[in-house]
């Protein structure tokens, strides 16, 4: 499963660092001449330019030098259920590293606090990033490779208010500016996007060619078809608090408004919520307009807005 998050590409100079992380070790370079430590990896000592540098295993422990909570994720891909907390950690060896803090709430974080490394597996190729958490948090490694969340069970969701289709007043009372709770989450990965491309015949490279999309596209990788995300509604169970009864037939009458305001990068989790926007009686029957909004998890801006019209006859 791919993700559009930038991944480290090891060079011949830095490979021991990344290989070390994969093998559970934190490797740093130390100068054999001036004994000082260097980070990030270089051919030379960053203090005296000596080439006499050697890789050493270190504990990775350090103190928090500074941090910030990115209330606006630095890339859409960093939006998620978890806050993006960027940090700089000063290791025992004196070098500083750019990292992120996990397993901590912002109010638990204090500059100068002791922190310890967390090995975060971020890709199926085994790439591990060096994240950090509080020294006393029970966390040493974490699997962050995107996985499909479980499908919802048939009887999940809130108890539903039964409303007869003839009860116009009760139906009108459903109209609200407030959205429902979120649905279950669905993973939009490259396999799903490819399958949709084949089915629909829309195999434009921005959806199907990760390599080209990374190099030439504006989003750092592939994005899902808007139409795909729209139909994924069927996989999302929005916990509506009502159920309409007493009709003979119910039709999906189409959409009053369909917008794709923001992209869904491959590898994103999406979920949705809804509200009743309008209730109308006409010759054909009772017409309910439900505004469904699909969001990438953690993103404020919806990826799909669909004002779905359902006709009860």
């Amino acid at each position: 499963m791919s993700s559009n998050k930038p991944m480290p590409v090891a060079t011949s100079l830095s490979a021991p660092f990344w290989d070390g992380l994969k093998a559970g070790k934190i490797m740093l370079q130390q100068c054999g001449d001036c004994q000082q430590w260097t980070f990030y990896p270089r051919r030379h000592c960053s203090h005296c330019l000596s080439h006499n540098v050697a890789w050493k295993e270190v504990s990775g422990k350090g103190t928090l030098y500074t941090f910030t909570v990115a209330r606006v994720p630095t890339l859409p891909e960093f939006a998620g259920a978890e806050l993006q907390i960027l940090a700089v950690v000063e290791l025992e060896q004196g070098v500083r590293v750019n990292t992120t803090l996990i397993g901590l709430d912002p109010e638990q974080i204090e500059i100068g606090m002791p922190v310890k490394p967390v090995r975060a597996r971020v890709s199926e190729d085994g790439t591990v990033l060096l994240r950090y958490t509080g020294a006393n948090v029970d966390l040493t490694e974490r699997d962050e490779v995107p996985k499909a969340p479980p499908a919802p069970t048939a009887d999940s969701g809130p108890a539903k208010q039964q409303i007869a289709v003839t009860d116009e007043a009760a139906l009108k009372a459903l109209v609200s500016d407030e959205y429902s709770a979120w649905s279950n989450q669905v993973l939009v990965d490259q396999n799903l996007i490819n399958a949709f491309a084949e089915l629909s015949g829309d195999n434009y490279w921005i959806h199907t060619d990760p390599e080209r999309a990374r190099k030439e596209g504006p989003f750092g990788g592939t994005i899902a078809h808007g139409a795909l995300v729209q139909v994924l509604m069927s996989r999302m169970q929005v916990p509506l608090t009502f159920e309409i009864t007493g009709f003979t037939n119910m039709v999906n009458y189409g959409s009053e408004r369909l917008r794709f305001p923001s992209p869904v990068p491959a590898g994103s989790l999406v979920h949705s919520r809804a509200r009743v926007k309008a209730v109308e009686r006409n010759k054909r029957g009772t017409q309910l307009t439900l505004e469904f909004n699909v969001h990438v998890v953690g993103q404020e801006r919806p990826a799909v807005i669909n004002d779905l019209v359902i006709l009860y006859m």
Binding site: K5, Y40, L129
Partner: peptide, 8 residues
Amino acid sequence: AEFDLPYG
């Protein structure tokens, strides 16, 4: 590119 971007 290697030590900043992957962390955001």
